[in-house]
Nucleic acid binder design. Structure first.
Length: 107
DNA sequence: CGGTTGACTGTTT
DNA sequence: TAAACAGCCAACC
């Protein structure tokens, strides 16, 4: 079994899991926090592979433009609903107020 | 080995 | 503000 791949996966999920409620982070930001610069796409790939019932707060991850990156459909709707539920403003076009909600890890 | 595919990004229009 | 482009990179076939 590919140990490396699984290790990166765990680190990425650990970072996503540490994003506080009501805050959001970009794929690139998560990648950097996980020690994997330039691997934003890998973050998206890992999140896409999560089981439907996962407790990982994947909905707190957006693209660098501050928008829901998931293509319009059931998934993006769920993400928007979950964010709104945490007090994060989501415009009809899927845009989020990054200035107010961006997660800034402290140490 | 090589082409395709994205839940990406930064820069340029 | 938004779209087009060009890099980027692992996973898949």
């Amino acid at each position: 079994m590919p140990r490396d791949r699984d290790e990166r996966r765990q680190r990425i999920l650990a970072v996503v899991d540490s994003i506080p409620r009501g805050r959001v982070a970009s794929y690139g930001q998560v990648a950097r926090e996980a020690g994997l610069p330039r691997h934003a796409r890998l973050v998206g790939r890992v999140l896409a592979s999560l089981s439907p019932g996962s407790r990982i707060p994947w909905h707190r991850v957006l693209n660098s433009a501050g928008k829901i990156s998931l293509r319009p459909g059931p998934g993006s709707t769920t993400q928007a609903r979950r964010l709104a539920r945490e007090g994060v403003k989501v415009s009809p076009t899927g845009r989020i107020d990054l200035g107010a909600c961006r997660w800034t890890p402290e140490a």
